[in-house]
Design a protein around this nucleic acid. Structure first.
Lengths: 110, 110
DNA sequence: CTCCAAGTTTGACGGACGTCGTACTTCTCC
DNA sequence: GGAGAAGTACGACGTCCGTCAAACTTGGAG
């Protein structure tokens, strides 16, 4: 485990609803979450660069930071690169059904 | 019915998820929705001034506009004043479970 | 008809936010 | 251990957004 990785039990708590919404209300960040959420169950993790397009790396890092601080993502090692995992259980506990409702609505509008 | 009131069947469609989130991601607007949502079933409507505190009237109007354009609120006459109704059915159709999940999470964090 | 209360419109302003380039760090692999 | 790929940190910049005051509109009460 690399020095920067945070154990699951020391992650920041999932933020309050209002902050959560703010974190998700950006197109780039919503897309990041959508991509993670659409991965096969439980191993919902991917290297950073798989989660965005059309952004500079620094901008992407900025968005990841906001999502991590809101308690949505967990930064982890994925193969040889850094990556992120969707904190499904924590989110489900903080706001039951929210993520599911969002993803379903997103899926519907295509 | 006052001249400015819009029939239910001509309201703007509920906005896409991303715009919806943006509309709800502001503290003042989230509180407006929360107050409407916590009213007795179905007649969830109230005069404008009951839905906010600590804001100037012009700011409140601004927020209402955003919520109406996102398809969340329906401006209606309430007694002698203008007011708003929460568009529960439309929201439920556009994003099933989302409003409920949000309100439940909000209720929990007090 | 006139007045008043309640909302809206408009314009201005300040701070927050998304974006990027550049320089820096940290892993991995040879 | 050096080289390079992958992210991060920092600073700058422009735009969007929330806020307000002031002037205007509108519906209702008397």
């Amino acid at each position: 485990m690399p020095s920067w990785e945070i154990p699951s039990d020391q992650l920041p708590p999932v933020a309050a609803v209002q902050k959560l919404l703010r974190a998700l209300a950006d197109p780039a960040r919503l897309e990041m979450v959508r991509r993670l959420a659409s991965l096969p169950e439980d191993k919902a993790e991917a290297p950073c660069s798989d989660l965005y397009e059309g952004l500079s790396k620094s901008t992407a890092t900025h968005h990841f930071k906001i999502l991590v601080e809101a308690g949505v993502l967990h930064p982890v090692m994925v193969g040889p690169s850094r990556g992120h995992r969707l904190r499904r259980p924590a989110l489900q506990e903080a706001a039951p059904g929210l993520l599911d409702a969002l993803m379903a609505a997103l899926a519907r509008e295509r």
